[in-house]
Computed example of a mutant assay.
Amino acid sequence: MTIQVLETSLPEIKLIEPQVFGDARGFFYESFNAREFAQLTGVDTPFVQDNHSRSAKGVLRGLHYQIEHAQGKLVRVVAGEVFDVVVDIRRSSPNFGKWEGIRLSAENKRQLWVPPGFAHGFLVVSESAEFLYKTTDYWYPAHERSIVWNDPDLAIEWPLDGTPTVAAKDAAGQLFSNAEVYA
């Protein structure tokens, strides 16, 4: 096996650590293998879209989700470091409203599986970061939703160094108590 799958405090969220082969020339690792991913995570789903973002230190993106055409996301950082956050927004879940935060970086090469039913966001903690997402459904702007990053009910412990830079749509995000969520 070329990956190890670690459990998190939210059972559906999987932290994936690849086996990295390094020597004086540099390194090599298999960043995705559909067969191995399905075997080790129990998730056998096609990925239909790849996204790549670059952000400066202090940029906070999220907490995003699509209320219809819910997306599963396999995320990783290829330059820099982020504090990645997922929130369970499935009303029927025993973990409804709970969050998990994990550092992803180019150095640790970790990936995070975020299944449908979770809001997702990240804060850039390095000078800049490049972030990759593999998604299980396409982006539908009409169905995109945002929960405000500093919602008091969620009480996410972001490792902030000052006030984050957020997009207007994220600043206008809904409070968790008013957000459209999954059944």
Rank of each mutant, 00 (worst) to 15 (best):
G80I: 02
L132D: 09
V114Q: 08
R76Q: 11
S126L: 13
I102T: 04
P116H: 07
I147K: 09
H69M: 06
E127G: 04
T163E: 07
S128K: 11
W158M: 07
T165D: 13
D161W: 07
D50I: 15
V148H: 07
E157D: 11
T165S: 10
P141R: 13
S146D: 11
G162E: 08
F47E: 04
R61C: 01
L74Y: 03
T165K: 14
H143V: 10
P46A: 09
Q49V: 11
L123W: 02
G97D: 09
L123K: 01
I89C: 09
V78A: 12
V82S: 03
A79R: 10
P152N: 01
F118I: 00
P141L: 08
H120I: 00
Q111V: 13
E81A: 11
K109A: 06
E157K: 04
G62W: 04
L60K: 10
R110I: 09
T136S: 09
V124C: 08
T45Q: 14
D88C: 14
A171C: 06
G162I: 15
V87P: 01
S146R: 10
D151N: 03
E107H: 15
A70Y: 01
E144I: 10
L112P: 00
R145C: 10
Q174N: 14
H69R: 15
E81L: 08
P94Q: 04
S92L: 12
R61W: 08
A172F: 10
D170F: 13
R145W: 09
H52N: 03
G162A: 08
S93E: 05
G62P: 07
N150L: 06
T136V: 03
S55W: 01
Y133A: 10
D153F: 13
S105V: 05
V75E: 14
V75N: 13
A172I: 07
K73Q: 05
T136Q: 06
S92M: 15
A56H: 15
V125W: 02
G58I: 00
T163K: 14
P164Q: 03
L63W: 12
K109F: 00
P164D: 02
L63I: 07
H64A: 08
E157M: 02
E68N: 15
G62H: 04
P94E: 06
T163N: 05
V75I: 08
G72R: 07
S55A: 05
I67C: 10
K57H: 14
G58P: 03
P94C: 12
L175S: 14
F118E: 04
Y138V: 07
L175M: 11
K73M: 00
K98C: 11
N108V: 01
K169F: 12
S126G: 13
R145I: 08
Q66F: 00
Q49R: 03
K169A: 15
D153W: 09
G117A: 09
E144T: 05
S92E: 12
A171Q: 12
P159I: 02
L132P: 06
D84A: 02
